[in-house]
Design a protein around this nucleic acid. Structure first.
Lengths: 113, 113
DNA sequence: TTCGACAAGTAGCGTAGCTACGCATGAAGG
DNA sequence: CCTTCATGCGTAGCTACGCTACTTGTCGAA
């Protein structure tokens, strides 16, 4: 996948990844890549600002720790984040159905008999 | 639907609408609204520039006509546009599957047994 | 004559992801 | 010893693109 075009759905993806447990930024990138079979290979310049956005919005909280002499910032979902994720999931369903009506195979080609 | 978030998929929607026959700008807006049960109510400031983009790209061609004293610019799909639509459809499938893996209900919650 | 549907269009804004950097540590390999 | 690579954080600036708000114009109805 050309990666971009995530537009508007990135926050939802991040929340979904964190739903399964707290992770630090780098691990989030790897998790996205792994769970998508390599389709989603997002650059740090995409996810770090996104995580800060989510933190400002109160959807995630971060804590610093040091592992093997390396600083890590671990993010975890807040209650607000969990609610937001539910909303994002609903939004995604609507989006997918609406767009699918035009782009899914077998969508009304000429209003068949 | 909050309309926005179409990001990157608008071109595909326009091509899909025009696949069923040539339409003028205003009619395209109405077609999108009708086929989506009102979910997609796009402003002219969104679709006119998009149509010009598609025309510059060679995916649609336009012809002017006058109906009831009103000027109309009617757009029709070109061969290039038809190919582009096929590509957009494939891209949409991949996108939908990839994002769905994170956001669809029943997606891997904790890698079940 | 005023209002609303039809029909086209643009200017400017804001959001948000991407490119391309920079910094630092630790392990591996020459 | 020194370089390279994986790990790990981060930002500045660009660009793409949809949206808001606006203009222009015809026609029919109130």
């Amino acid at each position: 996948m050309k990666a971009q075009a995530l537009h508007g759905h990135l926050d939802a993806l991040l929340l979904a990844v964190l739903e399964q447990g707290a992770l630090h930024g780098y691990a989030i990138i790897e998790s996205l890549r792994a769970r998508s079979d390599g389709s989603l290979d997002l650059p740090t310049g995409t996810i770090y600002p996104a995580l800060r956005r989510l933190e400002r919005a109160g959807h995630v909280a971060s804590t610093w720790s040091t592992v093997n002499g390396r600083e890590r910032r671990t993010y975890q979902l807040t209650d607000s984040g969990r609610r937001a994720l539910a909303g994002e999931r609903a939004g995604w369903q609507e989006f997918r159905v609406t767009v699918g009506r035009f782009l899914d195979p077998g969508s009304p080609p000429v209003t068949p008999a």
